[in-house]
């Protein structure tokens, strides 16, 4: 698999070229931008019930039904995917086929070769794509404790090959030595395994959901911390002010 990063650093897009037939790229379903027609795209594996609900329905009657339901119940016609499911898969049918992947939010995209950086802990919101040789574990003890439930889970990433990491905003790298570092959890993209961390909520006045995650993470030890310069929770909090409520407007 070869790749090239385009439009850096504001709105980075990765052009991925497959080297052999059957080679696979795992990707966030929202990150798949475009591809050659030979590349097969399979959505994330979901439970039967979830799969049924998410299956695109066809026909005018179904569209009208979705329309009425969405107006009445405040529902999306298609439910949003869970914070972390398994990723979608792109499979090449021939060598030299290419696809474009990009994080859904505006910002940079970095490629980390896991042989070089070692095992990582990665925020699920920062996962854009990876080679199929990369292992992603979202069910280890402690995976849910770092972010708020809305912020996603912490994935344990191992194996080998390229990992495409993107978030909201640019990337700011902090190499930790003895002194430690404190940051908002919403800005954390990833950090090397072995760093000690401690998350404490910051008591904030005002409405829930209007602030950022409101949690500060304190890191200690030796390792590397990848921060994004923007926090999606802040954008979400701002958008909340304009969100409509169901029932009578």
């Amino acid at each position: 698999m070869r790749y090239e990063l385009l439009d850096r650093p504001s709105y980075t897009v990765a052009r991925v070229e497959f080297e052999r037939s059957g080679e696979r790229l795992l990707a966030d379903p929202l990150a798949v931008v475009a591809r050659e027609s030979g590349i097969h795209h399979r959505g994330p594996a979901l439970g039967a019930a979830q799969g049924d609900a998410a299956r695109p329905r066809t026909g005018l009657a179904a569209a009208l039904d979705d329309f009425v339901r969405s107006r009445r119940a405040g529902m999306h016609a298609a439910p949003p995917p869970p914070a972390w499911a398994s990723p979608a898969t792109l499979t090449a049918s021939a060598p030299r086929e290419h696809a474009f992947v990009a994080p859904p939010l505006e910002g940079d995209l970095a490629v980390l070769e896991l042989e070089e950086v070692g095992s990582l802990l990665l925020g699920s919101h920062a996962f854009v794509a990876s080679a199929s040789t990369v292992t992603l574990d979202g069910a280890w003890t402690g995976s849910a404790a770092f972010f708020t439930p809305a912020g996603g889970t912490l994935l344990r990433v191992g194996g080998s090959g390229p990992l495409f990491v993107g978030g909201y905003g640019g990337h700011h790298i902090i190499d930790l030595d003895a002194s430690g570092y404190t940051c908002e959890v919403g800005h954390v993209l990833a950090f090397t395994q072995g760093l000690d961390y401690d998350v404490a909520p910051v008591a904030r006045l005002g409405r829930a959901g209007s602030a950022g995650d409101g949690r500060l993470a304190r890191f200690e030890g030796r390792g590397r911390l990848y921060l994004s310069t923007r926090d999606p929770a802040n954008l979400r909090g701002f958008a909340e002010r304009f969100r409509r409520t169901s029932g009578r407007d």
Partner: peptide, 8 residues
């Protein structure tokens, strides 16, 4: 993309 539809 098969049965699971990305919301976007």
């Amino acid at each position: 993309a098969g049965p699971a539809a990305p919301a976007g």
